[in-house]
C-alpha cells in the first residue's frame, strides 16, 4: 500500500489502528507505525489530521522504547544468570545452546 495515495482521514484511521493494536503486546506494530508514519507526522506540510497522527506516532515511539528497555534488561539478566539458575532457566528456555553450561 502506498501511503502517498491515501486520503488523509484514512491515514489517520490506519495510524490509530496500528497504535491501538500495539497494546495487544505487539510492540512491532508500534515500530512499524513509527517508521511508516514518521514522514507524515513530522516532515509533511501541516494538514488537519496531522496533529493526531503526531500524537499516535509519539506514543507508539514511547511504548516501543519502553518495550525495548524492558526486553533488553530481561534478556541481559537472563543470559547472564541462565547457567546459574539451572533448572528454572532450562524450563524458561525455548532452545538451549549446545555444549555450554
Amino acid at each position: 500500500m502506498n501511503l502517498e495515495r491515501l486520503p488523509n482521514n484514512e491515514k489517520l484511521s490506519l495510524c490509530r489502528k496500528y497504535y491501538l493494536g500495539g497494546f495487544a503486546f505487539l510492540p512491532f506494530l508500534w515500530l512499524v507505525n513509527v517508521v511508516w508514519f514518521f514522514k507524515e507526522a513530522f516532515l509533511k506540510p501541516a494538514y488537519t489530521e496531522q496533529l493526531q497522527i503526531k500524537t499516535y506516532v509519539k506514543r507508539s515511539g514511547l511504548g516501543l522504547l519502553l518495550w525495548v528497555a524492558v526486553l533488553t534488561t530481561w534478556i541481559t539478566i537472563f543470559q547472564h544468570f541462565r547457567a546459574e539458575w539451572g533448572v528454572v532457566a532450562d524450563y524458561l528456555s525455548f532452545t538451549i545452546p549446545l555444549g555450554i553450561p
Partner: peptide, 24 residues
C-alpha cells in the same frame, strides 16, 4: 569434536527432556 552435553548428568538428562518442547 564439539560436545552437546555439559556440566553434569542431571543437567544433560533434564535438557534431554526439556528439549522435547523445542523447535529443534
Amino acid at each position: 569434536s564439539h560436545m552437546f552435553a555439559v556440566t553434569d548428568t542431571a543437567t544433560c538428562m533434564r535438557r534431554n527432556d526439556v528439549i522435547n518442547f523445542s523447535i529443534n
